[in-house]
Design a protein around this nucleic acid. Structure first.
Lengths: 120, 120
DNA sequence: ATATGTGCAAACTGTTTGCACACGA
DNA sequence: TCGTGTGCAAACAGTTTGCACATAT
C-alpha cells in the first residue's frame, strides 16, 4: 500500500481528537487541508485504515458509521439527547463464548442513554 | 395503535424462530402468507414493533439491520464465515458508566469472529 | 515504468415517505 | 365513520464503483 497525503491527513485528523466522526464529517474536515479531495477517496481510505487496523468503526442505531482513531478496545456510549459518543474502557469478557469453541476476533459494545451533561 | 394482519404476521414470524432476519428476509417470509404486502409496510411495522418493545434490532458491520423477536437482553455473535448470528445471554455491566451519572437505557454487544461450526 | 491511488459522477442498496385507497375500531 | 394502516412508486442517504488521469515507488 502506497502512502498518500489523503490517507495521512485522514488518519491524522482521526487521531488528533478523541472523538468520533462519520465519513462526511471527516470529508469536511480534511477538505480544509486538501480542498479537492473527494468523498469517494475518503471512503476508500477509511476502508483501508480499518483493514490495517489503524482505526476502528462504530455502528450505531442511526445507521451511519462513525470512525475512531483510538484503537485500544473500548466500549461506546451514545447519548440520545446530544448524540455525543463517549469512550469507556470497560473490561469485556468473551471467555464464555470462547469456552464454547468460538473464536472472538472483535467485539463492539454500544450503550444508549442519556449522558451526565444532558441529565443536568 | 390498530391491529393489522401484516404486523401480526411479522411478529409471529420473528417469534417463531430464534433467529435474526433483515427487512427483506422478513418481507420474503411474510409474503408467503400475505402475497401483496409491501416492503414499505414491513419497514413501518418493524419500526412500530421496536417502539412497543416487541422486537429488538441488531446493527452489524454489514450495515443492514437485523430484527430479533427474542427481547430478553442478550449479546450477539456474528460469524464472518457463515454470517450466522448467535445469541448469548451474557451478564453485562453498565454499573461503571452509571456510577459516572450516565443513564443507560439500552446496550448492544456484538462479537465478531468464527463460530464453532466453521472452525471445524 | 507501472501499479496503485485519485477525483468525478453515476450507480447501488437499504430505508423512508407522499399519496390515494383500504380497513379496523 | 374516520383516523390509522397499506400498497405502490418515487425519493433519499450513505456508500460503492467505473473510468480516465495522477502520482508514489
Amino acid at each position: 500500500m502506497r502512502n498518500t497525503v489523503q490517507r495521512e491527513e485522514i488518519l491524522r485528523f482521526l487521531r488528533a481528537k478523541r472523538a468520533h466522526y462519520n465519513a462526511v464529517q471527516i470529508y469536511d474536515a480534511v477538505r480544509v487541508k486538501i480542498p479537492n479531495i473527494s468523498l469517494g477517496t475518503v471512503y476508500r481510505n477509511l476502508g483501508k485504515l480499518i483493514e490495517t487496523g489503524d482505526i476502528i468503526s462504530v455502528e450505531t442505531e442511526d445507521r451511519c458509521v462513525y470512525y475512531d482513531g483510538f484503537i485500544k478496545p473500548h466500549a461506546h456510549f451514545v447519548c440520545r439527547c446530544c448524540s455525543d459518543i463517549y469512550d469507556f474502557e470497560i473490561e469485556e469478557n468473551s471467555k464464555e463464548i470462547e469456552a464454547l469453541g468460538f473464536k472472538v476476533e472483535n467485539q463492539r459494545t454500544v450503550y444508549y442513554g442519556v449522558c451526565n451533561k444532558c441529565i443536568k
